[in-house]
Computed example of a mutant assay.
Amino acid sequence: MVRLPVLFILVTMVIEAMGIGLIMPVMPALLEEVQGVGLSEAALWGSVLASAYALMQFLFSPLIGNLSDRFGRRPVLLVSMAVICLDYVLMSVAHTFWLLLVGRVIAGVAAATMATATAFMADISAPEEKAANFGLVSAAFGAGFVLGPAFGGILGEYGARAPFWAAALLAGANVVFGLLVLPETLRRPHAFDWRRANPLGSLHALNALPGLGALLALWFVFQVANWVYPAVWAYFTQSAFGWREGMVGLSLAVYGVSMIVVQGVVIRWVIPWLGERRTIAWFLPYNVVVLVAIAYVPNGTLLLLLTPLSALGALVQPAIQGLASRIADDDAQGELQGVLASITAIAAILSPLVMARIFNLATEGARHFPGAPFLAASGLMAMAWLLYRRQNARGVQA
């Protein structure tokens, strides 16, 4: 039976992960309403909101983690959830782009608490329970990625702001629940250290990872390409097939479920069978083909059929992580994971701006090729594949 404090943590992770996907199905309609622009230009404004959210998560995740070590898990988690509740109210009533931007900035800061939630689970877990409890946190976060777009798509049919009012009620109820059941678990507060709160600190570890430069470059290119899905999916499907919010949310939920199956099940036999190197070598070109197919897909039905197939391409990510982990020294594993996380965050900041601009250029005026961002992403995947082949041909580790 799940204890009530653990239930609060899991619900918090679901709500925070939902914040990423909740806005995706309704973003085109919301920005068209607020800015008075067409779909092509709305994608540009949407990319600014997406990048601002990612930037705040990148900047504030280490800071909030350190605050929880200083002041405790309970106040950090409760305050962040209360701020998320108020942010959803702000998004519900915002009638200017700048208020929407403020809302996304606040949401990005307040939702940067996964490290605090994980620390709480570590505090309350016996050594033999920690791995399983960390898995619960990850599973709840994954569930939020699936529920967010579905939630936003279904409620978006009742108006672009309806999902935010519902999410505000849910977050507010969770604050009350946390006030009643959440204990403080921090036993020995640590002094706050600005050096540990530096978001660029993990990138300093690059010097401690000799021989991994080419593989880290590969990771960056792959991440920029792969972020095309959340960056432009809602705009692409509406422009190409006229999908409404409900259909956009359903398709994103299908992608989320497919990702969970791939990362939780398929990976357990594909990578042991092929090994990391062949998984990278085979699935990078696989991604090229899938992205080209999405760029030119003639109807929405075929796109839905392609969605689970596109999720298979995500096998590249754990394969790169596994290979990098093999190459890095045993005492540099923490630095490696920090570098990978920082590179991923930078890609999440840059990719929406690039992909939305490509969509804008390909759809404004008389031009109409909404699949252009996916074609560009396929080119990046091809570049990543060539990088990998080149470093192998040179006999470089990676």
Rank of each mutant, 00 (worst) to 15 (best):
T12M: 00
A54I: 01
A328Q: 07
L7S: 14
A166I: 07
W194P: 05
L186D: 07
V288Q: 05
R367N: 15
F145R: 04
G21N: 00
A295D: 05
T307P: 04
V146W: 05
F177T: 09
V290C: 07
A208Y: 07
L215H: 01
G256A: 02
T344W: 14
A115S: 15
P189K: 11
F241M: 07
L31T: 04
I320W: 04
G338H: 08
G103N: 08
Q35S: 14
F177P: 05
V288S: 00
T279M: 06
Y286T: 11
V2I: 14
L200T: 05
Q321L: 14
V339P: 01
L170T: 04
T185C: 00
V83L: 03
R104E: 10
L250R: 13
I20D: 06
D123V: 01
Y255I: 14
L315D: 02
P308T: 03
L206C: 04
V265T: 12
E364T: 13
F8G: 02
W269A: 01
A234Q: 11
M18Y: 06
Y255D: 06
A160Y: 04
W194H: 03
L59I: 13
A205G: 10
A377R: 04
W233D: 09
A162W: 10
G153P: 02
I15P: 05
A115L: 12
A362H: 11
F164E: 00
N360E: 14
L7A: 15
P163D: 09
L101H: 03
A52V: 13
A324I: 13
A168F: 03
M24S: 08
G395S: 10
V102D: 00
R367Y: 15
I349G: 00
P373Y: 09
E128W: 09
A131P: 01
G201H: 08
W194T: 13
A191E: 15
L350G: 12
V266P: 01
R104S: 05
L336P: 10
M247V: 15
M355V: 00
D331K: 14
W243H: 11
R244S: 11
L209A: 03
L182M: 11
A293K: 09
I106D: 00
I346S: 05
L63T: 15
H95L: 08
P370M: 12
W98N: 10
F283R: 02
S61G: 09
T185K: 03
E245F: 05
A171V: 04
L284C: 03
A319F: 08
F241L: 13
G135E: 11
Y296R: 10
V266M: 11
R277M: 07
A372K: 05
L336N: 08
M381K: 09
G19H: 10
G213I: 00
R367V: 14
S47G: 12
Y296L: 15
M383K: 03
V396H: 12
G72W: 06
V297M: 10
R188P: 03
V261Q: 08
V176P: 06
G144R: 01
R73L: 07
L10M: 02
V146S: 03
L30T: 08
A111M: 06
R357I: 06
L315I: 07
S51I: 02
V89I: 15
F58P: 00
A52P: 06
Q337F: 10
R389A: 14
